[in-house]
Structure formats: structure tokens, C-alpha cells
């Protein structure tokens, strides 16, 4: 009887654990692009090579100190090249990553992105410093904390 009760307890606990697990996107993932104040003044529009549609590229928020944009990345290859339009020039920023397609008990099938196994994380024609941080799109969601963050790119000086 003790084992039976313990079994139900495990099932109940597992149910709670599963409900608090963020399984990430079930489609094209997005990255967060942060532009520091100096860069924000120059970049007016963002697009990407091989994009079938520009509608997913959100406009920057000029009201905040940091301009942020949520940008989709390609699942068809291990890199995405963003086009950064300024007044008189277009710069490119190519982000490299490794796609992970797999399944796990908490989620079933999922997609995740991680840092490339070899080579640089990015390539750019920008003059400003670029910083790329990789973090999984999946993970346990703490009641107090944020969801898993995914990839973040920061352009510009502090």
C-alpha cells in the first residue's frame, strides 16, 4: 500500500514538474536584438537575407533607452544574415548557431539553438562592438524567474 501511495505521489510530482517546463518555440525561433543608444540613432530598419516576408521584423522602440527587436532566425540553415539599414548604408550581421531537433519526455519534439561547435558566433560589417549570448530556449520555468531566454545580441557601446 505504501508503494502504491508513493507511486501516485511520483506521478503527481512529475505532473507538476512537466507543467512548469518551457518547451520553447514549436516554429521558427526568435532572437532578441538590443541596440545601445549610439546605434539606435543610426539603424532605421532591419531585414534579413532569404526572408520570404518582412512582416516578422518588428520595428525598434525609439522611446526606450535600449532599442530592442525580436527577430526570427532561419531553421533551414545554421546561420541567419540580418540586414541593418542606416541612412546612407546597409550593414550585415551574420549570426551562427547550431540547430538541435530532438525529443524529450517533458516536451515531445522540440527545436533548440546553441552556440556553433566551431567558428565565430557572428560576422559583421558594423563598426560598433557586437556581443552574442547563447542560452537554451528550453528549461524549467521558475515561478519567480523568467522563461528561458534564447539567443541575445547586443550592438553598441555602453
Amino acid at each position: 500500500m505504501k508503494k502504491l501511495v508513493r507511486g501516485f505521489f511520483y506521478i503527481f510530482t512529475a505532473g507538476i514538474a512537466v507543467s512548469c517546463y518551457d518547451c520553447g518555440p514549436q516554429a521558427e525561433p526568435t532572437i532578441t536584438l538590443s541596440l545601445r543608444q549610439d546605434t539606435l540613432q543610426t539603424i532605421q530598419r532591419i531585414s534579413a537575407l532569404d526572408a520570404k516576408s518582412d512582416s516578422a521584423f518588428s520595428t525598434l522602440d525609439p522611446g526606450s533607452y535600449y532599442g530592442t527587436a525580436t527577430l526570427p532566425v532561419s531553421l533551414l540553415q545554421d546561420s541567419t544574415t540580418f540586414l541593418l539599414y542606416a541612412e546612407n548604408r546597409v550593414d550585415t550581421l551574420t549570426l551562427f548557431y547550431k540547430r538541435i531537433f530532438d525529443s524529450k519526455r517533458e516536451c515531445g519534439y522540440y527545436v533548440d539553438l546553441s552556440a556553433p561547435e566551431a567558428g565565430p558566433p557572428f560576422k559583421t560589417t558594423l563598426n560598433q562592438p557586437v556581443q552574442v549570448e547563447y542560452s537554451s530556449y528550453l528549461g524549467p520555468r521558475d515561478f519567480k524567474g523568467p522563461s528561458p531566454l534564447g539567443i541575445r545580441i547586443t550592438i553598441g557601446r555602453y
Binding site: A27, E28, A51, K52, S74, L75, F101
Partner: peptide, 16 residues
């Protein structure tokens, strides 16, 4: 048969 929708760059399809 897996299909991850890709409205911007195209759908990713594979067979697992």
C-alpha cells in the same frame, strides 16, 4: 514526419 512552421524563412521538414 515533422514540420516546424517557418513563416519568414520557410518551413523545416524532416523525417524522424
Amino acid at each position: 514526419e515533422l514540420l516546424y512552421p517557418g513563416p519568414t524563412f520557410g518551413d523545416y521538414k524532416s523525417l524522424d
